[in-house]
């Protein structure tokens, strides 16, 4: 059974504004799934439909086998949620918030245990939430999401507003949750974290899914290999990389030769060839493309494609 199964989801506002357009996506049980896209891509709208905050124009969503719109209670009993743009109750303390969530979820959690998991002190938990910093608020909200040992965690932009320490805590939490065999589905436009923890990634742009794959798979699909940079005493006259499979580009800047390789095993051959040309290699560095670059590649020029799809709807 899929943790989340999104089938032909479209959400249209007004006559022709598509927040999400004919989206198909399946998140398997037990995987950490990253949902990526620039602001306004439709990530939150998709999650809002998954959580039944927003009703779809067409298409359907099932969560853990339950219909997201018709069986909302069954879904919410089993899912932990950190919504986008959420708020809390200023006059209630952190501990009261957790107790409220525990009561409403009919769960057996100990608030102290949850506080410890998200790193909130007992003093902080006794204070009204109106005086919390953004980081403390976010921790408490994540604590609420963890109530009732959910099988699936849905986190919409879990790192927004957090300091680097908080960001790391969120990442650790995602890892731990995943290690316990649970499914984690989270959206982000901060890519480094997604890269660090996700089994698979979907990239959404302008309401369309543009890619779903593993991070490695995305790299391979785009063919943007890693770059080997060789600093040499003198650049050889001849760089005969043309005959070498797995090399996709060469540039020379001052005393550095940059070679882009799509096959990691040719790196050795590249170094040998440079040496054969008569140069002494002083330094070697290699660089993997970041997800950031992949992301820009995917989302940079989709306007035409999106327009076509909207035409297709009419």
């Amino acid at each position: 059974m899929a943790a989340i199964d999104i089938d032909g989801l479209t959400k249209r506002y007004g006559g022709d504004v598509y927040a999400v357009n004919d989206l198909d996506l399946t998140v398997q049980e037990g995987e950490v799934f990253g949902f990526l896209g620039p602001n306004g891509a439709g990530k939150s709208t998709t999650i809002d439909v998954v959580l039944d905050y927003v009703r779809p124009t067409s298409g359907s969503v099932t969560v853990l086998g339950y219909d997201a719109q018709a069986e909302t209670r069954q879904v919410h009993e089993r899912v932990g949620i950190l919504p986008d743009g959420y708020g809390l109750y200023d006059r209630l303390s952190g501990r009261e918030h957790l107790q409220y969530a525990i009561d409403l979820k009919d769960a057996a959690d100990d608030p102290e245990d949850l506080l410890e998991r998200v790193g909130l002190s007992a003093e902080a938990a006794a204070r009204p939430v109106g005086g919390y910093s953004k980081g403390m608020t976010q921790r408490l909200a994540i604590g609420i999401a963890l109530v009732g040992d959910p099988d699936l965690l849905v986190l919409d932009e879990p790192s927004s507003g957090l300091d680097p320490n908080g960001v790391r805590q969120v990442r650790d939490l995602v890892r731990r949750t995943a290690d316990e065999g649970r499914t984690v589905f989270f959206s982000s436009h901060i890519l480094s974290q997604v890269e660090a923890v996700c089994d698979r990634v979907a990239i959404l742009n302008d309401g369309h899914l543009v890619a779903v794959d593993t991070v490695e798979g995305l790299r391979a699909a785009l063919g943007t290999g890693s770059t080997v940079s060789l600093r040499v005493d003198a650049v050889p006259d001849r760089l005969p990389f043309d005959g070498l499979d797995g090399v996709s580009g060469v540039t020379v800047a001052d005393d550095v030769v940059h070679v882009t390789v799509t096959d990691p095993t040719v790196k050795d051959d590249v170094v040998d060839l440079v040496r054969d040309g008569g140069a002494t290699v002083l330094d070697i560095t290699t660089r993997e493309p970041s997800l950031e670059e992949l992301f820009s590649t995917y989302t940079a020029a989709p306007a035409e494609q999106a327009a076509d799809a909207v035409e297709g709807q009419r």
Binding site: L51, H76, Y86, G87, K105, D106, A145
Partner: peptide
């Protein structure tokens, strides 16, 4: 305030 999303994210 958005607290409705936390509340409705729970079973009620």
């Amino acid at each position: 305030s958005g607290s409705i999303k936390v509340l409705l994210g729970l079973p009620p």
